Amino acid sequence: MTTFFDQTQTVTVSRYCSQGWWKGNFTEHVVKGTGLGPDCTLTVYSPSRDGVTARFNTQTQVWSEEIDDATLTPFYGPDGEQYALDYPDGTFPDWAIFGAPPEHDRDTQTVLHSGEAWTVYDIKMGAPYWDADCRRHVVSETCFTLPADHTWEAPPNTEKGFCPVLKDGQWQVVEDYRGQTQFDKKDATVSKTVTEAGPLPRGWTLKAPATVFDVWKNNRWQYDQDKARPAKSLSERRWRDAVLAFLLQRLEQFERDLQVAEQYRTGTLTAADYEHLLADRKRLCDYPDAAGFPFADRPTLSAPGQALADKVV
């Protein structure tokens, strides 16, 4: 209900918003026969301290108890955007951050709150960067942190057999043997494929041994007879035994043929061939005892003996 003044005068009033919250105290000049506006009251409220406010009840014409004015407390989103509540008794959202973000250049930088602290980021949208495998990437995030083992610097061009390697954030040009086979200098039977760029590990080489019996000496592989002797001896004995078995079969066949009439003989050996094979038998039996065995030359056989030896793989 509006009260009209019976005389012109100046009065002190408290003004409030549509929700009743105090907006301040003012001096109003009212003319006789008029009244105050709907947002004013002669029941003046004066805050007891800074940062508090009250709410006017238009029905009872009484101010509420004071509360802290939440609209005076700015808060921020994780992206640094500042907000304020609409009403003094409003509730702050769960994501509200009350510490202001650090000063930064809004044209070239942005901020992000991790939940614990603010971080200032240089805006790198569209900028290229490279990983340790020289793959090129492009920044697609506003708040971007360069991952570990990545760099803003493009990898250098390299010659064949070399490649760039990222170490401590800097490119280094190193040897590139990836895909090739490396051999253990301590054991010619051990090898593996190179999988990482850079110098070969100590004790390894790309030079392939000619045999499993090679040893690394004077910066090269050398055939080691002592290492090869057991296997070589076994191999030569097996060869001798196989040739000797063929030879004995032919000798036995010739001797059986001598016991039957000539028209019933099946062998093709002549008496001279028989003599030659007997001599070859002796040479083969003596071979393991020859000087330099098993690395000496194999015994020289007669033509029929050599024909039998040629059958042995």
Results as ranks from 00 to 15, higher is better:
Phe144Tyr: 12
Arg178Ile: 06
Trp118Ala: 00
Asp79Cys: 05
Leu112Gly: 03
Thr110Ile: 07
Val173Ala: 11
Val173Thr: 15
Pro128Ala: 09
Val120Met: 02
Thr142Cys: 07
Trp63Ser: 00
Pro155His: 03
Lys167Met: 09
Thr108His: 10
Pro47His: 12
Gly77Glu: 07
Trp130Leu: 02
Val165Trp: 01
Gly77Cys: 09
Val44Asp: 10
Phe98Ser: 09
Asp89Thr: 06
Thr53Arg: 01
Gln170Cys: 10
Asp50Cys: 13
Val44Asn: 10
Thr41Ile: 11
Asp68Thr: 07
Ala132His: 13
Asp69Met: 01
Pro78Phe: 01
Thr53Tyr: 03
Tyr45Gly: 13
Asp79His: 05
Val52Glu: 04
Asp79Pro: 02
Phe144Cys: 06
Tyr45Ala: 14
Ala127Pro: 00
Arg49Trp: 12
Thr60Ser: 14
Arg136Ala: 09
Phe56Asn: 00
Asp168Trp: 09
Asp86Val: 04
Leu85Ala: 00
Ser64Ile: 01
Val62Leu: 13
Thr53Pro: 04
Gly99Leu: 12
His104Met: 04
Glu141Asp: 12
Thr71Glu: 04
Asp122Val: 08
Pro147Cys: 11
Thr43Pro: 05
Gly77Trp: 02
Gln82Ile: 06
Ser114His: 08
Thr142Met: 08
Ser64Gln: 02
Glu116Trp: 05
Asp94Val: 11
Ile67Gln: 00
Gly161Lys: 08
Ile67Trp: 00
Pro78Cys: 02
Cys143Asn: 14
Trp171His: 12
Pro74Glu: 14
Arg55Glu: 00
Ser140Arg: 14
Leu146Phe: 07
Pro47Gly: 12
Pro47Ala: 13
Thr119Ala: 15
Cys143Lys: 14
Gln59His: 13
Thr53Gln: 04
Lys167Asn: 13
Trp118Asp: 01
Glu65Gln: 14
Gly161His: 09
Asp89Lys: 04
Val62Ile: 15
Thr73Lys: 13
Tyr87Ser: 13
Cys40Thr: 12
Cys134Lys: 06
Ala54Lys: 01
Thr145Arg: 15
Gly179Ala: 10
Ala132Leu: 10
